[in-house]
Structure formats: C-alpha cells, structure tokens
Design a protein around this nucleic acid. Structure first.
Lengths: 341, 341
DNA sequence: CTGTTAGCGCCTTCAA
DNA sequence: TTGAAGGCGCTAACAG
C-alpha cells in the first residue's frame, strides 16, 4: 500500500502537522525534526497525493490570459483552446479570465497588463507585441511577483518566466527545407509573404527562412518580402498583382495569417503557373487548400498545447515549483494533405 | 462558488447519500426522488469533482500492458512512456503491469492474453500480431468483460474497444508524398524495407505507400519489399547487399524498425549514391541520421501519447464512460532536421 | 517549535 | 427507500 502522511508521521514519531510543514517547506520546524521526517519520507518512498492536497487546500489559481481580439482563424483557435481549458478549470483548480486587447497595439496591451496585475492573479499569460512600453509593463508585473509567460509571440529584453510558443527561427528553416526540396529542379523566384516585420515571430521566421534558402538553395532567388498585415483582402491583392507582374515565381512562403486571401489569389492562377506553397497554421482554409493541392505544406503550432503549457508553467511558478523546460517545448507540426489530423 | 453535493442535497431536500446514489446511477431511489435530484443538478450546474471522487473511492485500476520484448528504440521508448505513466500511477490511481512477449510471436502473445485475462485486471492493452490465435485470445478477453485496446499495431476482425495508434495507411501515403517530391527529377528505383508483413501496421503502410507511389509518381518503380524483422543486423545486411547488387536506387522507405542497421549501411555508401530516405520513429539513431543528412524525413508516432490514450480509454471503459474518439486520434508527426524537438 | 482538530468533496458502510 | 456518520490523503487554523 502506498504510504501516506500518517505513515510518515508515525515512522518519524511526529504529528501530521509537522509532517505537513516539512513536506511544504514551511518554517517552524527544528532541523532535527525536519531530518527525521525527510528520512522517513525517503525510506518509505512517500509521494504526496496531489489530488488530495489540492482538495484540502481548496486552492484555485486565478489566471489571466490577455490575447488580441484579432479575427483570424488561429486566434479563434486559441480562444477555443482557452474555453476548453476553462471547462477543465474545476478539476485543475484554475479560474481563467480572458482579456481582449486590440491586435498589434502596444499601448493597449501595456495597459491591459497593468490592469491585470492590479487584480493580483496567480499568473498572467499574454501574446506579446515586441515594444518598449509592453516590456515596461511586463517588468511591472514581474516586480509585483506575479508569474508571467508569453504566448505564441515572445517579448525581447524581459526575463519573464516562460515563452509558450514555437521556435520561429526553426519554423523558417523548416519552411526553407520543404520549399527548396519540393521545388525540385524548377528554377525561378521565391516570394515571401508576411504579416508585419514589426512582430517578432514573423521577423524571426523571415530571417531564418532567407538564411536557410541562400545557404541550401542559392539557385532560388528571394523576392522582396510582401507585408499583408495578416489581412485576407490585402493579401489577395498583393499576391494577385505579384503574379500578374511576373511569371518566374516557382514558390511562395506565407509566414503570417490571412491565408484566405492567398488561397483566393492562387485559385485564379492557371494550374501550370501554380507555385509550391508553404503556409502557417492549420485552419479551415489551409486544410482545404492542402487537400485541393493549392498549398503543399502547412507548418502549425498547436494552440491547445500552448495554452496547456502556459497553464502548467504558471501553476508551477505560483507554487514555486520548478519547470521541466524540455517538456514544455512546443513542437512545430508539419502537415501535408496525407497526414491531416 | 462551484456547487457541491451538499448544495444538491439541500436544494433537493434529500440527504448526501441519496444524491450520491442518483449521481452514480445506483439502485434504491424512487423515481420521484431521483427526479428532484436530477433537477437540482441541472439547475445548479453541478459537475462532480473527479479528483475528490477518486480519493473517496480509493479505487485503483490495475492495467496490463503486453508489449514485445524487442530491442529496438521505439519499443524502448514505449517502455519508457509506460514507466512514466507508472510514476503518475498514484495520481491517476492506476497500477500498470508490463508483460513482455517475444516479438512477432502470435502463439506467445495469445498465451500472454489468456494469462493476463486470468488475473482479471481493469483493462488490457497489447501490441497486436495480426493472427487467428491472437484474435481468438482477444475474443476471450472481451468475453470476460475486460476492456481491451490494441497499441501501435491493430488486430483485424475483432471488435475490441479501441486502437491506440496512428493511421498506418495515411503514414504510407505521407511517406510516398515526401519521398516522391524529395526525389525531385531523379529517376530510378525505390526500395522498401519492412519488419514483417505479419504485423498489420507494416502491411498497411506498405500497401498504402505502393498505391500512392504508383498513382502520384509512376516514374519511380518500386523494388520488392525487404523484410528485416526489425533487427538492425539483418537490416544492415539486406541494405548492404541491395546496394551492391544494383546502382539505380534513388530512394528508400524504411517502414519498420531496426534503423540502426540501415544507417550503418547508408554510412558506407559513397555520398553521390545516397538515396532519399524516409524512415519511421524518431530515435537517437534516426535523429542523428536526420542531422547528418543520411535520412531526409522521419515519420513518428508519439509513444507517450499512445500510452496515455490507451490508459484514458481503458479507464473510461472500466467506468462505463464514453470515449471521445476524435480526441484519442494519434497524430503522424513529420520531422526534418529543422523541426526536431 | 509541535500537536490537535476540523474540514476539502465525495463515497460507503450501517441503520432506520 | 432513505439518512447519519465516518473516512479517503492532505492542509490549515488554533492551541499549547
């Protein structure tokens, strides 16, 4: 039978309360007593029943998630993942509060951070905009002793607790590998379509992609980066005019959102002119385009994993427990038409 | 505040015990009382605290996992995943017993199933060998009322509770897509290396791969399938002699295990003769080969996910709860050198 | 510094 | 058919 606190108590010859103090590293125990308990713990191979502990504590962790009120599929997916987490809230003893802020608005985000901190939750997660005022607000949160993690997009120059998102440089390199190899022996230009070079994840993907392309596939020249502001309409226009301007494009890397516009533009292209296309985020749109052959591969980050990871990390930090970094790494999924989930 | 059984009890004007009976659909409650309780439950939006329930029940689920005592990295990984699950055993209130059987040995596996059933565990998971005697043993387990799931490789013609593994036909098609596209404009033969056509996962991968290749890349002819019995030594020999026999091989699909042997054989090949290689399962070996460029892509199934899924399903079945099939689908991961976790 | 005691939310005898 | 009471493993006042 699995040993319990009672076994530890009698083995060490102390009371339950003392055992509890030692187990939870609370003060008010003499060194000798502590030792006796520790010894009993290791001798009996005691591991505490977290479920029972949480039940007794009755503790709930109020967590605040600040996310952009952006109407693209990925952010909708993120929200969905948060809703699911909220449903498991009672079991995991967390209470999630979602705060919306305008997308790409550093000032609004900074204010949201200050406001969230004022409520003193057990932790805050937010999708960063990489700007000084946001960094300042983040520092404020950290100074207030509130665990803080970035979600999806990271923040430079602030030592927050964690970044729950993919390695965007690796994503850029992965895109380059796939695109270069899928292009095969075709020769021509490669177009790059981003949301905005002002956000860190896009910048990192773009730079890594360009570096990998020129290293591994120098015969495929890169065209200047197009910025579609993650807006389907803008993207459609950009891509359409690009393809009517020139006829030497063999491949395209869409590293941002707004792929609905991209797909519409591609659909109007004559089949023999269709480029190799790599895009990001598995959505209704990109899934359909994969299946119809308009997009060749999709790199994806699992919003559900990111949310769950953020929650785990925030809870651990709130409890002062260590985080197994390797276990929290978010994978870059690759989807072809054949391995769609 | 989240409602508890107490709230339900007072709202319905009954005692805790009665509430409990209704919640757990136990007999001995009049229809009228039951109704009152049900109404209180839905009015208050009560959801029961599973952790507390398990704590009170003190129930543990003895689960038996039967896996091949095969010394390849994937099976070692599976074992590792099982060990990890065992460590969480106390929290999840399961007790895992691992039973080893010789690989690809239908008779031994069948016997192990009978033996496991005799111990009447809460559930059994096993890596199937697709043979009649195994099917008979599986039927016996099912007839004994013990929840049964297959792991990694499925069993034909038996309606067991679940298959915790990837869609192997999809894996074969994915391999074909990648291999065909990575081959680019190279022309020649494609070698296929399997473990054994006796296991259903290998057969399915192989058939789907062949079908997809002839449909999408008819210019690349397939060579007869080599069976390496997932044994590194055998595999090395097979591949070595294959490449000394002929010089028109442009690509190779290794759909089984034993890739240590494959990599050793590839290493000895002159760089310009090296084929495009797609293999299965991310291990030390395949990871190294990806990084060194000997292998181009690895399809992976996450043993940890499979084990956890099997456990979830077995527990649910043991409790008579439904399973959300979509949530239990195991993904096919694609790894290139660039997106290694 | 240490122990006693009363719960957390739920389940399970045992009586009525 | 129903209810009262005790306990699962742990934590947290409140006393000593």
């Amino acid at each position: 039978m699995k040993p319990t606190v009672h076994d530890i108590a009698s083995r060490a010859g102390v009371s339950l309360a003392t055992v509890d103090r030692v187990l939870n590293r609370r003060p008010g125990v003499s060194a000798r007593t502590r030792e006796k308990v520790d010894q009993a713990v290791s001798e009996l191979g005691f591991v505490r029943d977290v479920a029972a502990a949480n039940l007794a504590k009755g503790r709930v962790y109020p967590l605040t998630f600040i996310i952009p009120s952006n109407d693209n599929s990925f952010m909708r997916g993120l929200r969905l993942a948060l809703d699911e987490a909220t449903e498991r809230a009672s079991v995991e003893r967390i209470a999630i509060r979602i705060v919306d802020v305008p997308a790409f608005d550093a000032k609004a985000l900074a204010e949201a951070l200050y406001a969230a901190a004022a409520e003193a939750p057990a932790g805050i997660a937010f999708v960063a905009v990489d700007a000084p005022e946001v960094a300042a607000a983040a520092e404020h949160v950290i100074a207030a002793g509130i665990p803080l993690v970035t979600l999806v997009s990271d923040l430079s120059g602030v030592s927050h607790d964690h970044y729950a998102g993919i390695d965007n440089a690796a994503a850029g390199r992965t895109a380059a590998s796939l695109l270069g190899r899928f292009a095969g022996c075709r020769r021509g230009k490669v177009a790059v379509l981003a949301g905005s070079m002002l956000v860190r994840d896009h910048r990192e993907r773009c730079e890594a992609f360009a570096a990998a392309m020129s290293a591994d596939f120098p015969e495929l020249g890169l065209l200047p980066v197009l910025e579609g502001r993650d807006d389907p309409v803008a993207v459609e226009q950009l891509v359409s005019s690009l393809f009517s301007d020139r006829d030497d494009i063999v491949a395209l890397y869409s590293l941002g959102a707004g792929n609905r516009g991209l797909v519409r533009a591609l659909e109007r292209l004559a089949a023999e002119r269709r480029p190799v296309v790599i895009a990001h985020e598995l959505t209704e749109t990109t899934r359909g385009a994969l299946q119809s052959g308009l997009i060749d591969a999709v790199l994806n980050q699992d919003a559900g994993h990111e949310v769950r990871s953020a929650i785990r990390v925030l809870k651990a930090k709130a409890d002062g427990l260590p985080v197994v970094a390797a276990q929290e790494r978010i994978r870059i999924d690759i989807f072809l038409k054949d391995n769609l989930p």
